[in-house]
Write a protein that binds this DNA or RNA. Structure first.
Length: 152
DNA sequence: GCCAACGTTGGC
DNA sequence: GCCAACGTTGGC
């Protein structure tokens, strides 16, 4: 059963263009249990990803990607030099997991957060809910299909 | 196990 | 840069 996701990233740190260049990337640095649990327990190879740029102007959905590898330990948690280092994690007992994400396309017509708020069919999307900070959010198949139609 | 203090996210 | 929302930490 294919699932659909929205994954947030700050384009200054990692943008859809960066993903286009690297083709795939481990989704490292997630340090929130709810987001981790989605990756660990619910994401499967082939799931569709809406690639969302946050903390930028305008913020919104700028690309499409797919999950290309199931959850595996996020190596940055073991790396003392990484900003994502977690001293409580050990290789025997990792705390943080990530999936690998693969580039699919860059939207020629991105869908900004402002536009999402204006579209009544998308009014239940989590990303427009006040105070919604979760960096990985489930998206319904209907919302995903609406977005594909609007952006192609 | 409660909850105040603190840190982070992210739109504006 | 502000600040609302909300997750995490740690003292008790």
């Amino acid at each position: 059963m294919k699932k659909y996701w929205l994954m947030k990233t700050e384009p200054d740190v990692f943008s859809i263009d960066d993903l286009k260049k690297s083709k795939t990337t481990p989704w490292e640095g997630v340090r929130n249990y709810q987001a981790r649990n989605y990756m660990m327990n619910e994401m499967n190879v082939g799931d569709e990803v809406l690639f969302y740029h946050s903390s930028t102007d305008p913020s919104g959905i700028f690309g499409l990607a797919t999950v290309s590898k199931k959850a595996f330990p996020d190596l940055t948690q073991f790396n003392k030099k990484s900003e994502y280092y977690d001293p409580k994690a050990t290789k025997q007992k990792p705390i943080w997991y990530c999936v690998e994400v693969k580039y699919k396309s860059t939207l020629t017509k991105p869908l900004t957060l402002h536009e999402i708020k204006e579209i009544s069919a998308l009014k239940n999307m989590l990303v427009i809910k006040k105070g919604q900070r979760l960096s990985i959010q489930p998206v319904t198949e209907a919302d995903y299909n609406t977005i594909i139609k609007l952006t192609s």
